Amino acid sequence: MPAPPYLRIVEDVKARVARGELKEGDRVPSTRRLAQDWGVALATAAKALTVLAQEGVVRAEPRVGTLVTSWRPGAGPRAQAGARRLGGGEHELTRERVVAVAVEMADAEGLAAVSMRGVAGRLGASTMSLYRHVRDKDDLVGLMIDAVLGEFPLPEEPPPGWRARLELSARLQWAAYRRHPWLAWVTSLTRPRPSPGLLRHTEWALAAVDGHGLAPDAMMRIHILLYSYVQGIAANLELEQQAQAATGLTDEEWMDRNAPYPALLAQGGYPTFVKVVEDLGGDFELDLDRLFEFGLRPLLDGLALIIERG
Results as ranks from 00 to 15, higher is better:
Pro260Arg: 15
Ala112Ile: 11
Pro153Asn: 06
Thr127Leu: 00
Arg33Val: 12
Glu96Val: 09
Leu214Thr: 06
Phe294Ile: 08
Gly74Tyr: 07
Ala45Gly: 03
Ala45Glu: 07
Thr127Ala: 13
Trp71Thr: 05
Gly87His: 04
Ala164Thr: 01
Tyr6Ile: 00
Gly295Trp: 06
Gly302Tyr: 08
Ala100Thr: 10
Ala120Ile: 13
Arg72Ala: 11
Pro2Asp: 12
Leu286Asn: 13
Pro298Ile: 08
Arg84Val: 13
Thr202His: 05
His223Pro: 01
Pro262Val: 13
Arg171His: 07
Gly295Lys: 05
Val98Cys: 04
Val51Lys: 13
Gly142Phe: 07
Val277Ala: 13
Thr127Arg: 15
Gly197Phe: 02
Tyr261Asp: 02
Arg297Gln: 08
Arg132Glu: 14
Arg178Glu: 08
Leu7Gln: 15
Arg309Ile: 01
Ala46Tyr: 08
Asp12Ser: 15
Asp37Arg: 12
Pro194Gln: 02
Gly161Ser: 10
Ala164His: 05
Ala208His: 03
Gly25Trp: 14
Glu285Ser: 10
Ala266Met: 06
Val28Asn: 05
Glu11Phe: 12
Gly82Asn: 08
Leu130Gln: 09
Leu226Gln: 02
Met116Arg: 12
Val209Asp: 03
Pro192Ala: 06
Leu249Val: 10
Ala208Pro: 04
Arg191Phe: 08
Val209Gln: 03
